[in-house]
Simulated scan of single mutants.
Amino acid sequence: MTVIKINAITVPKDAGDELAHRFAKRAGAVDGQDGFEGFELLKPTDDREQWLVVTRWRDEESFQAWLNSPAFGHGHRSESERSGGEAPKPVSSHSELWNYEVADLSQG
């Protein structure tokens, strides 16, 4: 059963472009993980400040294996940190992880 993990990240309006830029820099960091099925970064189109990072996994075990892997830590470090530099200032003020599974699916 596919599981969905949504990281709801609160980002001030003036920092959204920077968040998108940082995600683009680590594009593909999770792609090779066993059980990984997909990723989307959703940008709000209304007055909300919550960006959604949506990942799909074959099962909870696959997600947990990635969460506890060295690849997770490496993928969540900035380009500067991976080069031995300092971490950039965070662009978000809050985040929370939402957990879902697919209850119904329609494909067109």
Rank of each mutant, 00 (worst) to 15 (best):
M1D: 14
I9V: 08
T10G: 05
P12A: 14
P12L: 12
D14W: 11
A15W: 06
A15H: 15
E18V: 09
E18S: 06
A20R: 06
R26A: 01
A27N: 06
D34Q: 12
G35R: 10
F36V: 10
F36T: 10
F36R: 09
E37F: 04
G38M: 01
G38E: 08
F39H: 07
P44A: 00
T45P: 00
T45S: 11
D46I: 02
D47C: 09
D47A: 12
E49M: 04
L52I: 00
V53R: 02
W57D: 07
S62G: 06
F63N: 09
A65V: 11
A65E: 11
A65T: 15
L67H: 10
N68Q: 09
S69A: 10
P70E: 01
F72T: 08
F72L: 03
F72K: 03
G73K: 10
H74K: 06
H76E: 11
E79A: 07
S80G: 12
R82A: 06
G84N: 05
G84L: 01
E86W: 00
E86A: 07
A87V: 04
K89Q: 13
P90L: 11
P90K: 13
P90Q: 09
V91Y: 14
S92D: 15
S92C: 10
S93E: 07
L97R: 10
L97G: 04
L97P: 03
W98V: 15
W98I: 15
D104N: 03
G108C: 00
